[in-house]
């Protein structure tokens, strides 16, 4: 079976593929929770210098101690980046294609 046939068969079964993708997402989250549960007893309190108490230190602590922190970070980060780029930066810098033509 050549590459094109593989792609086309995946497209024909798009519903199954999408379901499979959701299953992977669930698995990833479940795996992280498991990892968190397994390492909870051995986790030491994060060492933070006095001078860096504050937002970044608490964010770091959250990343170390809260399960699925990076799931939230990934999803919100993606949406936030797209909104900032498309809705704030885009309208300012995007000009017609022939902007620099004389």
């Amino acid at each position: 079976m050549n590459l094109l046939q593989i792609i086309e068969s995946l497209r024909r079964n798009l519903k199954t593929v999408v379901l499979g993708c959701y299953a992977v997402l669930v698995l990833v989250v479940a795996a992280d929770v498991t990892r968190w549960a397994l390492t909870a007893h051995s986790r030491e309190a994060p060492v933070t210098a006095e001078s860096v108490q504050g937002f970044w230190a608490s964010l770091f602590e959250a990343a170390e101690t809260i399960p699925v922190f990076w799931t939230v970070f990934g999803f919100l980060g993606c949406v936030l980046l797209v909104i900032v780029s498309k809705a704030v930066v885009g309208p300012v810098v995007t000009k017609p294609e022939d902007f620099y033509d004389e």
């Binding site: 997402l25 990833v28 795996a31 990076w70 990934g74």
Partner: peptide, 12 residues
């Protein structure tokens, strides 16, 4: 685990 979460939920 960190990388897969960040990337796959970006894809979502």
């Amino acid at each position: 685990s960190e990388t897969l979460q960040v990337l796959l939920f970006t894809a979502l």
